[in-house]
Amino acid sequence: MAAAAAAGAGPEMVRGQVFDVGPRYTNLSYIGEGAYGMVCSAYDNVNKVRVAIKKISPFEHQTYCQRTLREIKILLRFRHENIIGINDIIRAPTIEQMKDVYIVQDLMETDLYKLLKTQHLSNDHICYFLYQILRGLKYIHSANVLHRDLKPSNLLLNTTCDLKICDFGLARVADPDHDHTGFLTEYVATRWYRAPEIMLNSKGYTKSIDIWSVGCILAEMLSNRPIFPGKHYLDQLNHILGILGSPSQEDLNCIINLKARNYLLSLPHKNKVPWNRLFPNADSKALDLLDKMLTFNPHKRIEVEQALAHPYLEQYYDPSDEPIAEAPFKFDMELDDLPKEKLKELIFEETARFQPGYRS
């Protein structure tokens, strides 16, 4: 834990890192770190609560700039109880001085990944967590956004079992017609939660990839272990087919990539493993919904509104309290091709509203 900075004593240090967030945020305490930044909790002297502050230093890398800009653009436009918001952003007053960006968010005690390492969940908890994931996802999908990296560590939890989806750095506007060349190379989302079509096709992607990830998360809540822990690309596919069985001819016809289709045709026939054999203690309604989410063919996979209306979630289902976005989200430009200098300018502009004396 960093010592509390005395008023006016300059930035606090946390594990050798400068955290320049005073005077409003003090009493910093280390939480963890990701690929390009550290997260601390801090005391907000204005709202009198502890908050989470993520320090991001992305400006050396085009990919990190892209992810940072995506996350900020999306989260500043989203407003939903099951999606983490941005409360404040701290950065230098000029673009030349801006080396880091500090993002202030609600402090959540833990995440689903940490929880599943230590606790076996009751059916009631599984049901409530799944409902909140789908409630947040309904809003995301209504904005025409794909999260693309749903996994237990991106689901934040607090002691009252509130759940918030975080990390929109890989999110995209849904565009089933656009052929994202190089899709697989830039697709760094965790393999275990990846839909089979991501490994088999490169053309376009749809909201059904997020539903697949939610199915993987439900299976993990039922058993405290990942359902498809593939060691590499082909191993991942083999794990999936080992449980779902061989795809039907109709399902194979959806695979545009001939090499991928021929690979699947070359494999020995596998039978589907019954879900109640894998999860003998699970609620039968939970397994019915799991089956509809972990469907090989993305066109037959359940959609988020149908999933919310499934009998497993009937005690929570309330369409009048499951809000959607006001308007579909649009990125003005494809960020993939922009140089990091341009992305830095866009991050600077996007964060201006939090600067003292800002006038829109």
Rank of each mutant, 00 (worst) to 15 (best):
A2Y: 04
A3Q: 04
A3H: 04
A3C: 12
A6W: 10
A7L: 14
G8K: 12
E12D: 15
M13V: 12
V14L: 14
R15K: 14
Q17R: 03
V18G: 15
V18Y: 05
V21D: 05
P23R: 01
L28W: 09
A35S: 14
A35R: 05
A35M: 11
Y36V: 07
G37I: 11
A42Q: 01
Y43F: 13
D44I: 04
N45T: 11
V49N: 05
R50V: 09
R50P: 07
V51L: 03
A52W: 07
K55H: 09
P58C: 04
F59V: 11
T63N: 04
Y64E: 05
C65P: 05
C65L: 10
C65S: 15
T68S: 15
I74K: 06
R79E: 07
H80V: 03
E81I: 07
G85E: 04
I86E: 04
I86A: 00
N87Y: 15
I89G: 02
E96S: 04
Q97R: 09
M98A: 06
V101Q: 07
I103V: 05
Q105N: 08
D106N: 13
L107E: 10
L107N: 08
L116S: 08
L116V: 02
T118F: 04
H120R: 12
N123P: 04
I126A: 06
F129V: 07
R135Y: 01
L137V: 00
I140S: 11
S142T: 13
S142L: 11
S142H: 02
A143S: 13
A143Y: 06
N144R: 12
V145F: 06
L146H: 07
H147K: 09
P152N: 04
S153M: 09
S153I: 12
N158R: 12
N158V: 12
C161D: 03
K164V: 11
K164D: 07
D167M: 01
G169P: 02
A171F: 04
V173K: 11
A174C: 06
D175Q: 12
P176H: 08
D179G: 03
E186S: 04
T190P: 11
Y193W: 08
P196C: 12
P196T: 15
M199K: 15
M199D: 05
L200E: 12
G204E: 14
S208T: 14
S208H: 05
S213P: 07
G215S: 08
N224F: 11
N224H: 09
R225P: 02
P226F: 02
F228Y: 15
F228C: 00
F228V: 04
P229C: 04
G230L: 00
G230A: 01
Y233I: 13
D235A: 09
D235S: 08
N238A: 07
H239S: 10
G242W: 00
I243F: 15
L244Y: 03
L244T: 01
S248A: 11
E250Y: 01
C254Y: 14
I255K: 07
I256T: 03
N257D: 09
N257K: 14
L258A: 09
L258T: 06
L258M: 14
A260V: 08
A260T: 12
N262K: 15
L265H: 02
S266L: 01
L267S: 05
K272G: 08
W275H: 09
W275C: 15
L278Q: 15
N281F: 10
A282P: 07
D283K: 00
K285E: 13
L287C: 05
D288E: 15
L289T: 07
L290F: 02
K292W: 03
L294Y: 06
F296H: 07
N297G: 04
H299L: 15
H299F: 07
I302W: 06
I302V: 11
E305T: 00
P311H: 15
E314V: 13
Y316E: 08
E322I: 01
A325Q: 03
P328S: 11
F329E: 05
M333T: 08
M333I: 15
E334S: 02
L335D: 11
K342F: 01
K342G: 08
L343C: 03
K344I: 08
E345R: 02
E345G: 00
L346S: 11
A352K: 12
A352F: 00
A352N: 08
R353F: 05
R353K: 13
P356D: 10
P356K: 07
R359S: 15
S360K: 14
